[in-house]
Design a protein around this nucleic acid. Structure first.
Lengths: 344, 344
DNA sequence: CGCTGTCATGATAGCGCTACCATTCCTTTT
DNA sequence: AAAAGGAATGGTAGCGCTATCATGACAGCG
């Protein structure tokens, strides 16, 4: 290991990593030309470009993106904040985002709020500190501090999942309408004693919005719209357990409208284990359109939400904005599809 | 908007964001004291600390982490590279990592290779450029360039999922042993015509390792160990389709050992749809211990792998190392558990 | 009383890169 | 032929923060 500090007293290069200057020197150009050769290849001559690239290759140069970001006050980082990773829904959105963003050379900085808006605020603060190019967050609800912080931030903000008036860009679907849609379906099928089952609706407030739509429809028909709220997050297990609870509390129940497919599938499988006929004894509906719902017998009636597509579209719109193109619509409705199976 | 450049010619402050100097000024201390008040609170006086914190609060200061990282050549970023986000297994590991790392103030920089080692190399390069504190990657296999790059990197590297001799730290389980374990179970149950079904085993090479263990056991018993490799990634759908394929090719099949629970559950549900009795006509086993397997009837025989736990342990060991503590064991076996259900 | 040690603070000099302006050497225009 | 425009390159000065060393104040000690 050569250990000769370059000369003066206060040297402080720590890692012996190759710098752009060394590359430039090896290539026989100035540092700034080397920088341009890598970042704006069209702004340097053919010969400069190739000799820089050769030097990069030969020295095994890895650009220091931290320094680059500081100098340019831009970074190819995009913050993504979701409330949960257990819920596959968010993972699928991330998948769509990732796919599209990585293709454009962006990196994802991932944060998980665990449905805690204060946690979200902390994450946002940290992420702004990384001078991200943009921020993508699940949902339109934020706490006051977060709202303020983001309003003063001069980069694109994309809010995904539900549709509404957001801060900047918005891609999602109308959950109230989705709730109405399923409720309409159940009423059309002739069910009158319908229970809505959700899990932690203050946290998963989108499930709450679907309940609002559901209630609206039932009440318009003069039907009660009882709600059973579970205290655990949605899962097959919780769905299975909720079935007992619902039947105990509302013995005449004909149909259960679950807030998501995990709950619904859990209940459906549990019903079968205990010899109940679906939908004869009890009809079951879900939300999301998870593959699981298609593989149980009878197939689960559900509402298909285009989650990966939502991620892809959000990423595409964001990139559009980041590359300075005009954004004609700030809001995009990805819609949903009622998928009727044998379970209702 | 006040637009008065602070004085001289070449000013270039772009965003009108608050800087640490402004905080320091407001607090009546020097910038370096302000820095210390925030990062090493125990190194400044009570009074300095409070006045700095007040100024931070009042001005709405958000630290520029990019600048901080450049100056200190450290960052609270940890790169996480996984081959897939569709496969819930990795998501659960990420969940465990996230939970533990965020609690310690680390941020996750997420990369997805889509099972492509060249892609992994690119991601690693990028991530090193962010001077991450550590890198966590799924698996022990990397391409040559990546291997070289990482060997010369002087930060902790954590390889998760499978156990073996890695570059640095390693947390995982022995997949060959897991394959042996399930094969032994199937043989013990009296099955002799056993088919192993996996999806893209060159990509999901851990499933391939399980097959190795499986084959080993069967061959020791003088039993054939036919393999059916699917060309799609594991999913309920693929599992359902594979069932036909297996029965067509190996009509005497008594049991199918699937590479994962998605495939297994898909096949189990498909078998039931077409009136086959499980395990009477065909026994089915999986791997992972996904909740789904516990909710189908009969319950799926599978091997439970502690995925979140793996993430948590990996994160804990990494933090241990990062905080300069001694690391006694570089390798941690998280083990697995055979979970026998009615499906075999 | 001078000597050493500890604590709180500050001045200085970068971290590795890019924005900005200046320069050079052409080619094009009138 | 002179002026104007363009392309390629380089010099300089930071981006906002922290490592390092230096300083001053004060306590403890023989």
């Amino acid at each position: 290991m050569s250990r000769d500090s370059t000369q003066a007293s206060k040297q402080r290069r720590r890692s012996d990593q190759i710098t752009l200057s060394q590359v430039a020197q090896a290539a026989g150009v100035s540092p700034i030309t080397a920088s341009r050769a890598l970042n704006h290849p069209d702004k340097v001559s053919e010969s400069a470009r190739t000799s820089v690239l050769e030097a990069v290759e030969q020295l095994g140069y890895v650009p220091n993106l931290v320094a680059g970001s500081l100098a340019s006050s831009r970074s190819k980082l995009i913050a993504v904040i979701v409330p949960s990773l257990i819920n596959t829904v968010f993972v699928e959105v991330i998948k769509g985002l990732q796919e599209t963003l990585e293709a454009e050379g962006y990196q994802i900085l991932l944060g998980n709020t665990d449905y805690d808006l204060d946690r979200e605020y902390q994450l946002v603060r940290t992420f702004l500190g990384w001078s991200c190019s943009a921020l993508i967050t699940a949902g339109l609800r934020h706490n006051h501090a977060c709202q303020t912080l983001l309003n003063n931030w001069d980069h694109p903000i994309m809010e995904v999942m539900e549709l509404g008036k957001g801060m900047d860009l918005n891609v999602g679907l109308d959950h109230v309408a989705a709730g109405r849609c399923m409720a309409n379906h159940l009423v059309d099928q002739g069910y009158r004693h319908i229970v809505y089952v959700g899990a932690r609706l203050t946290q998963d407030y989108r499930a709450g919005m679907r309940y609002e739509g559901h209630k609206e429809v039932l009440q318009a028909q003069g039907i009660e719209a009882p709600l059973v709220e579970l205290d655990t997050l949605g899962s097959l297990q919780a769905g299975a357990e909720s079935l007992q609870q619902v039947l105990a509390r509302y013995p005449h129940t004909q149909a259960i409208h679950f807030a998501n497919d995990d709950l619904a599938a859990g209940a459906l499988l549990a019903a079968q284990r205990q010899g109940l006929n679906v939908p004869g004894d009890i009809a079951i509906a879900g939300f999301n359109g998870l593959p699981l719902g298609q593989h149980v017998t009878p197939q689960l009636t559900t509402i298909l939400s285009p989650r990966e597509e939502m991620g892809r579209l959000a990423a595409k719109e964001l990139i559009r904005r980041l590359s300075g193109k005009n954004v004609y619509r700030r809001q995009h409705d990805v819609g949903f599809t009622l998928q009727t199976g044998g379970s209702t």
